[in-house]
Simulated assay, not measured.
Amino acid sequence: MNNYAHILVAIDLSDEADSVLKKAQAIAEANHAKLTMVHVIEPLSVAYGSDIPLDLTALQDEITQQARDRITQLTNTIHLEKGNQHIVYGRPEREVHRIAEESEVDLIVVGSHGRHGLALIFGSTSTGILHAASCDVLAVRVGKKTH
């Protein structure tokens, strides 16, 4: 096993985020590595197109506050310092790679639902992170167990 010095865990706000975060923490502890967490919020104008004639500011602010609350809840269980927690806006794959490169991360940990076929090709954030990463990526299986 490689000795990792800096691990970035990219989490969504699903029920499985806790298990992904705890797996990343265990790897960080085993390697005496720094652990950084990121959650990426896609701007509503990107997710739904800029043709919507509504002011989405209040809704975006509510989504951001819910993300902050959930991140606080998650990180309190592992005592991750505020300076190592990032909530950013943009495309998840792009932002995870940006933070990984800027922070000289040598392992990215993400959750993966283990999708197959077209869902894997077109719908998986973890797949996008894997294919463009300049460091190791660990996909932690989450969701339904199939055995």
Results as ranks from 00 to 15, higher is better:
E62R: 14
L74H: 01
H86S: 01
D51G: 04
I87G: 01
V88I: 12
L56P: 05
I78L: 02
T72S: 10
A58G: 12
E81R: 13
H79V: 02
I63C: 01
H86F: 12
G90A: 05
A58H: 11
T72E: 10
A67M: 07
H79E: 06
A67Q: 02
R68E: 06
R68A: 04
H79G: 05
T57C: 10
L74N: 01
D51T: 13
T75Q: 03
G90N: 03
Q65C: 06
V88M: 04
I63T: 05
H86D: 02
I71N: 00
G83D: 07
I52G: 01
E62C: 08
D55H: 10
H86E: 02
D69K: 12
R68T: 05
T72L: 11
Q65W: 09
T77S: 14
Y89F: 15
N76A: 13
I63R: 02
K82P: 03
G49Y: 14
I52E: 03
Q60Y: 09
T64E: 09
I71W: 01
R68H: 11
T64I: 11
T75A: 04
T75V: 05
T64G: 04
H79T: 04
I87S: 00
R68I: 11
L54H: 12
K82T: 03
L74P: 01
D69W: 07
S50R: 11
L54I: 15
N84D: 07
S50C: 08
A47V: 08
Q73I: 05
L74W: 03
T57K: 13
D61E: 14
V88Y: 00
E81P: 00
G90H: 03
D55G: 12
T72I: 12
S50F: 15
I71F: 01
I63H: 03
D51L: 13
G49K: 14
N76R: 04
G49P: 15
L54F: 14
D55L: 09
T77K: 05
I87Q: 00
P53V: 10
H86Q: 05
T57F: 01
E62A: 15
T75L: 01
I71C: 01
D55N: 15
Q66H: 13
T72P: 00
L74V: 00
